[in-house]
Simulated assay, not measured.
Amino acid sequence: MLVDNPKIKRGVLLSTDVMTLVLPVTIFFPESLPYLVKILMQGAGYSWAAIIACMVPVGLCFEPIRWGIKLLGDGIRVPRLKIFAVLCLISIAMTVGGYINATSPVVKEVAFDLSKGAKGAKEFRVVMFSDLHAGKLMTRDRVGAIVNMVNSLNPDLVLMVGDILDDHDSELSGAADELALIKAPLGKFAVLGNHEYYLGNSWSRRMLEKQGVKVLGDSSSIVDDKFLLVGRNDFANLRSGGPRFALKNVIPEGNSLPIILMDHTPHRLDEAEQNNVALQVSGHTHNGQLFPFNLVVKKLYEQEYGTYQKGETQYYISCGVGTWGPPLRTTSRPEVVLMKVRI
Protein backbone atom coordinates (compact mmCIF):
# COMPACT_ATOMS: atom_id res chain seq x y z
CA MET A 1 0.00 0.00 0.00
CA LEU A 2 1.50 3.35 -1.02
CA VAL A 3 1.65 6.42 1.17
CA ASP A 4 0.12 9.74 0.12
CA ASN A 5 3.36 11.71 -0.37
CA PRO A 6 3.99 11.83 -4.18
CA LYS A 7 7.78 11.93 -3.81
CA ILE A 8 7.77 8.87 -1.58
CA LYS A 9 5.42 7.12 -3.98
CA ARG A 10 7.72 7.79 -6.94
CA GLY A 11 10.79 6.71 -4.99
CA VAL A 12 9.17 3.47 -3.86
CA LEU A 13 7.87 2.68 -7.34
CA LEU A 14 11.24 3.40 -8.97
CA SER A 15 13.09 1.26 -6.42
CA THR A 16 10.69 -1.66 -6.82
CA ASP A 17 10.90 -1.44 -10.62
CA VAL A 18 14.70 -1.56 -10.52
CA MET A 19 14.73 -4.51 -8.10
CA THR A 20 12.20 -6.37 -10.24
CA LEU A 21 14.51 -6.07 -13.27
CA VAL A 22 17.67 -7.21 -11.47
CA LEU A 23 16.94 -10.95 -11.49
CA PRO A 24 15.84 -11.23 -15.16
CA VAL A 25 19.01 -9.40 -16.22
CA THR A 26 21.23 -11.95 -14.44
CA ILE A 27 19.24 -14.86 -15.91
CA PHE A 28 19.06 -13.71 -19.55
CA PHE A 29 22.39 -11.87 -19.83
CA PRO A 30 24.76 -13.83 -17.55
CA GLU A 31 27.75 -13.60 -19.89
CA SER A 32 27.55 -9.79 -20.06
CA LEU A 33 28.18 -9.28 -16.35
CA PRO A 34 31.38 -9.57 -14.30
CA TYR A 35 31.21 -12.66 -12.09
CA LEU A 36 31.08 -10.81 -8.75
CA VAL A 37 28.47 -8.35 -10.04
CA LYS A 38 26.38 -11.27 -11.31
CA ILE A 39 26.48 -12.95 -7.90
CA LEU A 40 25.52 -9.75 -6.04
CA MET A 41 22.71 -8.96 -8.47
CA GLN A 42 21.34 -12.49 -8.38
CA GLY A 43 21.37 -12.57 -4.58
CA ALA A 44 19.57 -9.23 -4.43
CA GLY A 45 17.10 -10.21 -7.15
CA TYR A 46 16.18 -13.54 -5.58
CA SER A 47 15.85 -11.88 -2.17
CA TRP A 48 13.51 -9.26 -3.58
CA ALA A 49 11.40 -11.96 -5.24
CA ALA A 50 11.23 -13.79 -1.89
CA ILE A 51 10.16 -10.64 -0.06
CA ILE A 52 7.36 -10.03 -2.56
CA ALA A 53 6.20 -13.65 -2.34
CA CYS A 54 6.17 -13.59 1.45
CA MET A 55 4.75 -10.10 1.87
CA VAL A 56 1.68 -10.66 -0.31
CA PRO A 57 -0.04 -12.90 2.28
CA VAL A 58 1.11 -10.59 5.08
CA GLY A 59 -0.30 -7.60 3.22
CA LEU A 60 -3.57 -9.43 2.66
CA CYS A 61 -3.85 -9.90 6.42
CA PHE A 62 -3.98 -6.10 6.76
CA GLU A 63 -6.78 -5.74 4.24
CA PRO A 64 -9.60 -6.75 6.65
CA ILE A 65 -8.29 -4.12 9.10
CA ARG A 66 -8.28 -1.44 6.42
CA TRP A 67 -11.77 -2.33 5.18
CA GLY A 68 -13.06 -2.55 8.74
CA ILE A 69 -11.86 0.99 9.43
CA LYS A 70 -13.49 2.27 6.24
CA LEU A 71 -16.78 0.58 7.07
CA LEU A 72 -16.92 2.30 10.46
CA GLY A 73 -17.84 5.49 8.69
CA ASP A 74 -16.56 8.90 7.70
CA GLY A 75 -14.08 10.74 9.82
CA ILE A 76 -11.85 7.74 10.46
CA ARG A 77 -8.69 7.79 8.38
CA VAL A 78 -6.95 4.62 7.28
CA PRO A 79 -3.42 4.80 8.76
CA ARG A 80 -1.71 4.07 5.45
CA LEU A 81 1.69 5.38 6.46
CA LYS A 82 1.74 3.29 9.62
CA ILE A 83 0.62 0.17 7.80
CA PHE A 84 3.27 0.77 5.13
CA ALA A 85 5.92 1.24 7.83
CA VAL A 86 4.88 -2.01 9.52
CA LEU A 87 5.14 -3.89 6.21
CA CYS A 88 8.61 -2.42 5.64
CA LEU A 89 9.75 -3.49 9.11
CA ILE A 90 8.44 -7.01 8.52
CA SER A 91 10.32 -7.07 5.19
CA ILE A 92 13.58 -5.99 6.83
CA ALA A 93 13.20 -8.48 9.68
CA MET A 94 12.39 -11.29 7.27
CA THR A 95 15.35 -10.51 5.02
CA VAL A 96 17.95 -10.11 7.76
CA GLY A 97 16.65 -12.94 9.92
CA GLY A 98 16.13 -15.21 6.91
CA TYR A 99 19.70 -14.66 5.73
CA ILE A 100 21.20 -15.25 9.17
CA ASN A 101 19.12 -18.40 9.51
CA ALA A 102 20.07 -19.66 6.02
CA THR A 103 23.78 -19.26 6.72
CA SER A 104 23.70 -20.90 10.16
CA PRO A 105 23.31 -24.66 9.60
CA VAL A 106 22.85 -26.97 12.57
CA VAL A 107 23.52 -30.64 13.24
CA LYS A 108 20.34 -32.66 13.58
CA GLU A 109 20.81 -36.00 15.40
CA VAL A 110 18.46 -38.90 14.83
CA ALA A 111 18.73 -42.61 15.66
CA PHE A 112 17.42 -45.63 13.77
CA ASP A 113 17.53 -49.21 14.99
CA LEU A 114 17.41 -51.52 11.97
CA SER A 115 18.86 -54.54 13.79
CA LYS A 116 15.53 -56.16 14.73
CA GLY A 117 17.22 -57.41 17.88
CA ALA A 118 19.93 -59.33 16.03
CA LYS A 119 23.06 -60.25 17.96
CA GLY A 120 26.30 -58.59 16.94
CA ALA A 121 24.55 -55.43 15.74
CA LYS A 122 26.82 -52.51 14.95
CA GLU A 123 26.17 -48.77 15.14
CA PHE A 124 27.18 -46.65 12.17
CA ARG A 125 27.64 -42.89 12.17
CA VAL A 126 25.95 -41.94 8.92
CA VAL A 127 26.06 -38.27 8.00
CA MET A 128 23.43 -37.26 5.48
CA PHE A 129 22.74 -33.95 3.79
CA SER A 130 20.70 -32.85 0.81
CA ASP A 131 19.98 -29.75 -1.24
CA LEU A 132 23.38 -28.10 -0.87
CA HIS A 133 22.86 -26.24 -4.17
CA ALA A 134 26.53 -25.41 -4.62
CA GLY A 135 26.90 -22.64 -7.18
CA LYS A 136 26.73 -18.86 -7.46
CA LEU A 137 25.14 -18.13 -4.11
CA MET A 138 26.28 -21.25 -2.26
CA THR A 139 29.91 -20.21 -2.52
CA ARG A 140 33.11 -22.16 -1.98
CA ASP A 141 33.51 -20.71 1.51
CA ARG A 142 30.00 -21.74 2.53
CA VAL A 143 30.39 -25.22 1.07
CA GLY A 144 33.77 -25.52 2.80
CA ALA A 145 32.19 -24.63 6.16
CA ILE A 146 29.59 -27.37 5.68
CA VAL A 147 32.29 -29.87 4.72
CA ASN A 148 34.14 -28.99 7.94
CA MET A 149 30.90 -29.55 9.87
CA VAL A 150 30.48 -32.97 8.24
CA ASN A 151 34.06 -34.01 9.03
CA SER A 152 33.75 -32.85 12.64
CA LEU A 153 31.07 -35.51 13.14
CA ASN A 154 33.56 -38.31 12.36
CA PRO A 155 31.24 -40.12 9.94
CA ASP A 156 31.66 -43.73 8.92
CA LEU A 157 29.63 -43.02 5.82
CA VAL A 158 28.36 -39.86 4.08
CA LEU A 159 25.18 -39.74 2.00
CA MET A 160 24.46 -36.79 -0.31
CA VAL A 161 20.80 -37.04 -1.24
CA GLY A 162 20.48 -34.92 -4.36
CA ASP A 163 20.59 -31.27 -5.49
CA ILE A 164 24.18 -31.06 -4.34
CA LEU A 165 25.02 -28.93 -7.40
CA ASP A 166 22.93 -25.95 -8.48
CA ASP A 167 24.67 -24.55 -11.53
CA HIS A 168 27.85 -24.82 -13.59
CA ASP A 169 29.43 -22.04 -11.53
CA SER A 170 29.99 -24.67 -8.84
CA GLU A 171 32.91 -25.82 -11.02
CA LEU A 172 34.12 -22.33 -11.91
CA SER A 173 34.14 -21.12 -8.29
CA GLY A 174 35.66 -24.32 -6.90
CA ALA A 175 32.63 -24.88 -4.63
CA ALA A 176 32.24 -28.45 -5.89
CA ASP A 177 35.93 -29.16 -5.22
CA GLU A 178 35.30 -28.81 -1.48
CA LEU A 179 33.37 -32.10 -1.56
CA ALA A 180 36.67 -33.90 -2.18
CA LEU A 181 37.71 -33.00 1.38
CA ILE A 182 34.91 -35.01 3.01
CA LYS A 183 36.38 -37.95 4.91
CA ALA A 184 34.43 -41.16 5.48
CA PRO A 185 36.18 -44.56 5.74
CA LEU A 186 33.17 -46.47 4.35
CA GLY A 187 32.73 -44.06 1.48
CA LYS A 188 30.73 -41.06 0.34
CA PHE A 189 27.74 -41.73 -1.87
CA ALA A 190 25.24 -39.56 -3.75
CA VAL A 191 22.12 -39.67 -5.86
CA LEU A 192 21.29 -37.01 -8.41
CA GLY A 193 18.44 -34.63 -7.66
CA ASN A 194 16.27 -32.74 -10.12
CA HIS A 195 18.78 -29.87 -10.34
CA GLU A 196 21.62 -32.21 -11.36
CA TYR A 197 19.41 -33.50 -14.17
CA TYR A 198 18.68 -29.92 -15.23
CA LEU A 199 22.43 -29.31 -15.43
CA GLY A 200 22.95 -32.55 -17.37
CA ASN A 201 23.15 -36.07 -16.04
CA SER A 202 26.63 -36.74 -17.44
CA TRP A 203 28.15 -33.44 -16.31
CA SER A 204 26.73 -33.73 -12.79
CA ARG A 205 27.82 -37.35 -12.38
CA ARG A 206 31.30 -36.56 -13.67
CA MET A 207 31.63 -33.54 -11.37
CA LEU A 208 30.66 -35.54 -8.26
CA GLU A 209 32.78 -38.56 -9.16
CA LYS A 210 35.73 -36.20 -9.64
CA GLN A 211 35.42 -35.41 -5.91
CA GLY A 212 35.56 -39.11 -4.97
CA VAL A 213 31.79 -39.43 -4.59
CA LYS A 214 30.18 -42.66 -5.80
CA VAL A 215 26.92 -41.86 -7.58
CA LEU A 216 24.18 -44.48 -7.36
CA GLY A 217 21.58 -44.22 -10.10
CA ASP A 218 19.10 -47.10 -9.86
CA SER A 219 21.97 -49.15 -8.50
CA SER A 220 23.26 -50.45 -5.18
CA SER A 221 26.38 -51.06 -3.12
CA ILE A 222 27.02 -53.35 -0.16
CA VAL A 223 28.51 -51.44 2.77
CA ASP A 224 30.75 -53.18 5.31
CA ASP A 225 28.94 -56.48 4.59
CA LYS A 226 26.20 -55.16 6.89
CA PHE A 227 23.64 -53.42 4.69
CA LEU A 228 22.69 -52.68 1.12
CA LEU A 229 22.76 -49.02 0.07
CA VAL A 230 20.43 -48.31 -2.85
CA GLY A 231 20.22 -45.08 -4.85
CA ARG A 232 17.38 -44.09 -7.18
CA ASN A 233 17.28 -42.02 -10.32
CA ASP A 234 15.14 -38.99 -9.54
CA PHE A 235 11.70 -38.52 -11.08
CA ALA A 236 13.22 -35.61 -13.05
CA ASN A 237 15.07 -38.17 -15.17
CA LEU A 238 11.74 -39.33 -16.58
CA ARG A 239 11.05 -35.85 -17.97
CA SER A 240 14.22 -36.00 -20.07
CA GLY A 241 13.40 -39.47 -21.37
CA GLY A 242 15.72 -41.30 -18.99
CA PRO A 243 14.84 -44.34 -16.88
CA ARG A 244 13.63 -44.71 -13.34
CA PHE A 245 13.26 -48.42 -12.81
CA ALA A 246 10.84 -50.00 -10.38
CA LEU A 247 12.52 -50.39 -7.00
CA LYS A 248 12.02 -54.17 -7.06
CA ASN A 249 14.21 -54.26 -10.18
CA VAL A 250 16.96 -52.22 -8.54
CA ILE A 251 17.32 -54.39 -5.43
CA PRO A 252 19.55 -57.40 -6.26
CA GLU A 253 17.70 -60.68 -6.39
CA GLY A 254 18.14 -62.74 -3.25
CA ASN A 255 19.32 -59.81 -1.12
CA SER A 256 19.10 -60.60 2.59
CA LEU A 257 20.77 -57.48 3.97
CA PRO A 258 18.86 -54.52 5.48
CA ILE A 259 18.28 -51.85 2.85
CA ILE A 260 18.98 -48.13 3.20
CA LEU A 261 17.49 -46.21 0.28
CA MET A 262 18.50 -42.79 -1.07
CA ASP A 263 15.74 -41.16 -3.11
CA HIS A 264 15.90 -37.40 -3.59
CA THR A 265 12.18 -36.68 -3.92
CA PRO A 266 9.94 -38.13 -1.17
CA HIS A 267 7.21 -39.20 -3.56
CA ARG A 268 5.44 -42.58 -3.57
CA LEU A 269 6.80 -43.56 -0.17
CA ASP A 270 4.76 -46.75 -0.24
CA GLU A 271 7.16 -48.26 -2.80
CA ALA A 272 9.91 -48.45 -0.18
CA GLU A 273 7.54 -50.08 2.30
CA GLN A 274 6.38 -52.64 -0.27
CA ASN A 275 9.99 -53.63 -1.00
CA ASN A 276 11.03 -54.11 2.64
CA VAL A 277 13.32 -51.08 2.77
CA ALA A 278 14.49 -50.52 6.34
CA LEU A 279 15.26 -46.79 5.99
CA GLN A 280 14.69 -44.23 3.24
CA VAL A 281 16.40 -40.83 3.24
CA SER A 282 15.18 -37.99 1.03
CA GLY A 283 15.34 -34.21 0.64
CA HIS A 284 13.98 -31.91 -2.07
CA THR A 285 11.19 -30.19 -0.12
CA HIS A 286 13.32 -27.62 1.77
CA ASN A 287 10.34 -27.68 4.15
CA GLY A 288 9.10 -24.87 1.92
CA GLN A 289 12.20 -22.72 2.70
CA LEU A 290 10.04 -19.57 2.93
CA PHE A 291 6.68 -18.91 4.55
CA PRO A 292 4.00 -19.58 3.34
CA PHE A 293 5.44 -22.17 0.92
CA ASN A 294 5.87 -24.64 3.79
CA LEU A 295 2.07 -24.84 3.92
CA VAL A 296 1.98 -25.65 0.20
CA VAL A 297 4.70 -28.30 0.48
CA LYS A 298 2.84 -29.88 3.38
CA LYS A 299 -0.13 -30.44 1.05
CA LEU A 300 1.99 -31.80 -1.80
CA TYR A 301 3.81 -34.57 0.07
CA GLU A 302 2.74 -37.33 2.39
CA GLN A 303 5.63 -36.29 4.65
CA GLU A 304 7.50 -33.08 3.90
CA TYR A 305 10.04 -32.98 6.74
CA GLY A 306 11.45 -35.06 9.59
CA THR A 307 11.02 -38.65 10.68
CA TYR A 308 8.17 -40.82 9.50
CA GLN A 309 7.19 -44.48 9.45
CA LYS A 310 5.04 -46.69 7.24
CA GLY A 311 4.79 -50.28 8.41
CA GLU A 312 8.32 -51.38 9.26
CA THR A 313 9.94 -48.83 6.96
CA GLN A 314 11.40 -45.71 8.55
CA TYR A 315 11.96 -42.42 6.69
CA TYR A 316 13.88 -39.23 7.18
CA ILE A 317 13.12 -36.26 4.90
CA SER A 318 15.63 -33.45 5.32
CA CYS A 319 14.87 -29.77 4.86
CA GLY A 320 18.31 -29.45 3.25
CA VAL A 321 21.51 -27.65 4.14
CA GLY A 322 21.54 -24.98 1.43
CA THR A 323 19.09 -22.70 -0.33
CA TRP A 324 17.62 -22.50 -3.80
CA GLY A 325 16.90 -19.11 -5.27
CA PRO A 326 16.88 -16.49 -2.49
CA PRO A 327 19.61 -17.02 0.13
CA LEU A 328 16.93 -16.89 2.83
CA ARG A 329 15.17 -19.41 5.07
CA THR A 330 12.21 -18.64 7.28
CA THR A 331 10.58 -22.04 7.82
CA SER A 332 13.41 -24.20 9.23
CA ARG A 333 17.10 -24.27 10.04
CA PRO A 334 19.41 -25.70 7.37
CA GLU A 335 20.72 -29.02 8.63
CA VAL A 336 23.42 -31.65 8.41
CA VAL A 337 21.90 -34.87 9.71
CA LEU A 338 23.87 -37.24 11.93
CA MET A 339 22.08 -40.58 11.84
CA LYS A 340 23.15 -43.16 14.38
CA VAL A 341 22.08 -46.32 12.59
CA ARG A 342 22.19 -49.61 14.42
CA ILE A 343 22.31 -52.63 12.09
Rank of each mutant, 00 (worst) to 15 (best):
223 V>K: 07
171 E>Q: 01
309 Q>R: 13
8 I>H: 01
296 V>A: 14
55 M>R: 00
196 E>R: 06
25 V>T: 15
59 G>L: 06
212 G>R: 03
84 F>S: 13
252 P>N: 12
334 P>C: 00
32 S>V: 07
155 P>T: 10
298 K>T: 06
69 I>Q: 15
269 L>K: 11
270 D>I: 11
193 G>Q: 02
95 T>N: 05
9 K>F: 12
162 G>C: 06
291 F>K: 06
99 Y>Q: 08
145 A>K: 15
250 V>M: 05
298 K>M: 12
3 V>H: 08
277 V>E: 08
132 L>R: 08
149 M>L: 11
75 G>N: 11
269 L>N: 11
79 P>A: 03
116 K>L: 08
113 D>W: 03
76 I>R: 15
9 K>E: 06
303 Q>R: 13
146 I>L: 05
187 G>P: 03
340 K>Y: 13
203 W>C: 06
86 V>A: 15
166 D>T: 09
6 P>V: 03
328 L>R: 03
6 P>Q: 07
31 E>D: 14
289 Q>L: 01
212 G>L: 11
267 H>P: 00
241 G>R: 02
100 I>E: 14
150 V>Y: 05
162 G>H: 02
35 Y>W: 03
249 N>E: 11
54 C>E: 11
263 D>H: 12
149 M>Q: 13
116 K>R: 15
251 I>F: 07
228 L>A: 09
138 M>W: 13
39 I>Y: 07
333 R>M: 04
314 Q>F: 02
213 V>R: 12
208 L>A: 10
156 D>Y: 03
297 V>P: 08
166 D>H: 04
25 V>R: 01
211 Q>K: 08
295 L>D: 07
45 G>C: 01
318 S>M: 04
57 P>C: 07
11 G>I: 03
157 L>D: 00
9 K>M: 13
88 C>E: 09
107 V>L: 12
229 L>Q: 04
297 V>Q: 09
25 V>I: 15
54 C>L: 12
44 A>Q: 00
7 K>S: 09
49 A>K: 04
329 R>A: 03
234 D>K: 08
57 P>M: 09
256 S>A: 14
125 R>Y: 00
334 P>R: 00
150 V>F: 09
214 K>L: 15
145 A>W: 10
67 W>L: 15
256 S>L: 14
59 G>A: 05
75 G>W: 12
257 L>C: 09
152 S>N: 13
264 H>T: 05
129 F>N: 12
32 S>H: 12
72 L>T: 09
108 K>F: 12
305 Y>W: 12
40 L>G: 10
43 G>F: 14
294 N>V: 06
271 E>S: 14
317 I>S: 11
85 A>P: 06
35 Y>S: 04
29 F>P: 03
305 Y>F: 08
307 T>K: 06
277 V>A: 07
